[in-house]
């Protein structure tokens, strides 16, 4: 069955069943492999994307549900917050193995868009759904603060 899916500002037509997790549609059909498979049950956050601006775990969202939303993946992440986060990640040397970082960045991006000056507690709450086995958490937290500060300076 064919579904229309709006991803990163483009309309895609996907021929698979509506029960398919969005994650596999993104990865195997649309070849958007920046979104990672890490656990398959919304435990690790490596597959985080945005649906209508809200962070969601694409491994646990069906294509049929996703088809009603605007989906944004790491490949389409743009705007001042995304740029500030990427710059902070590079400057801080946040990633180690890097596998979880797409998901970390998408969660951080949603946080920064909703809250331009997050506290440590806000960051802990927003990011506790994202695992990092390399334990880059302290640098992630610092990176989010850096990005928020950079955005604050700019505006």
């Amino acid at each position: 069955m064919t579904h229309s899916l709006f991803v990163n500002g483009r309309l895609h037509s996907v021929d698979t069943d509506g029960d398919a997790p969005l994650l596999w549609v993104l990865r195997d059909h649309l070849r958007l492999t920046g979104t990672k498979y890490g656990c398959g049950k919304a435990q690790c956050g490596a597959c985080t994307v945005h649906a209508d601006g809200q962070p969601v775990r694409s491994c646990s969202l069906s294509l049929a549900d996703a088809a009603t939303s605007r989906i944004e993946t790491i490949e389409g992440a743009a705007g001042p917050e995304a740029e500030a986060l990427t710059a902070a990640w590079v400057a801080r040397g946040v990633p180690q193995c890097g596998f979880c970082q797409s998901g970390q960045l998408m969660s951080a991006l949603a946080l920064l868009r909703a809250n331009s000056a997050p506290t440590d507690a806000d960051i802990d709450a927003a990011m506790s759904g994202n695992l990092c086995r390399c334990a880059t958490y302290n640098r992630i937290r610092a990176g989010i603060h850096d990005a928020a500060a950079a955005l604050g300076d700019r505006s």
Partner: peptide
């Protein structure tokens, strides 16, 4: 859910798969 981590981040309208 917390404003920055809503239940709907993971839990959708139906049991998934």
């Amino acid at each position: 859910g917390d404003p920055h981590l809503r239940c709907a981040t993971c839990h959708n309208d139906a049991n998934f798969t």
